[in-house]
Design a binder for these strands. Sequence first.
DNA 1: TTCCACATTAGATATTATCTAAAATACATG
DNA 2: CATGTATTTTAGATAATATCTAATGTGGAA
Lengths: 141, 141
Amino acid sequence: MDVDTIRRSLEAGGLRCTPQRYAVMAFLMEHSGHPTAAEIFAAVNRVDPRSSRGTTYNNLRDLVQAGLVREVAVEGRAARFDAKGMRHHHFICDRCGNVEDMEWYDLPRPAARSLGKRVFRECELIFRGLCAKCARRQAFR
Amino acid sequence: MDVDTIRRSLEAGGLRCTPQRYAVMAFLMEHSGHPTAAEIFAAVNRVDPRSSRGTTYNNLRDLVQAGLVREVAVEGRAARFDAKGMRHHHFICDRCGNVEDMEWYDLPRPAARSLGKRVFRECELIFRGLCAKCARRQAFR
DNA sequence: TTCCACATTAGATATTATCTAAAATACATG
DNA sequence: CATGTATTTTAGATAATATCTAATGTGGAA
Ligand SMILES: [Mn+2]
Ligand SMILES: [Mn+2]
Ligand SMILES: [Zn+2]
Ligand SMILES: [Zn+2]
């Protein structure tokens, strides 16, 4: 991933380009999985520069607020993160909690009537079931 | 809510009807909000019988596994729960994390092609934005 | 080069959830 | 009804996840 692309997306989000923040953003853009904060912390520290756990959490919070990163809450597990690249939905495994990307398709906006005085921002569609790995395990018992 | 209805739904889920478990289920059926485990614990202990925090978590886990209760993970906040009554979607407030019910409508099943070897169970649609209360606060600044 | 708002740090702390092992009990069975 | 047993409850410890604090460092505008 191009250094300037990342640098510019941070600036576009009103965020300074620090080595630690850059490392978090770069890692998310280069890995299409859905790592947890702990995994991101470990990964960016495997290379330079040294970043603290607190900073990793701070930067993830900032990147989410800036709209560059999405946070996916999974019941009973650590939150997962992905860079907002191409639009997509998610599949979450009932058994192992893995989050996988699913092809995007448009969703009907909620009816104004059912929205009431709420201010709508976005829809998120989550598919649930068993991931391929867990489905295979299930079949073998 | 009828005592026997609750008792029977517990039995249908393969769960013994204990006073503590009954109290959790009854509370969820009688309150259409989306309480956290801590709120449920406090509420069922305000009346009899005394239930421990651990038991509240155990029972919520069991009720979710039995398909009687739904758990809603909210980023950065405690999980919330609701009894699975009428089908509905959810609106989650960006600002205060409140979970509100939204009218149900059917969703297209994911295409077999994009599902791959995964085993589909259900779709969940989440609307995001500002709840009525937070939208009002936002307007006043 | 200087300056300062913003960012980072280590460690403490808070919040949420699970585990443990001993005691209690729901309920099937006779 | 009485009994037996698998399930459930309990208090407290522990684990997992996330945030706070206040001292220190720095990106980048000017
Ligand atoms: Mn994704
Ligand atoms: Mn609901
Ligand atoms: Zn899985
Ligand atoms: Zn709100």
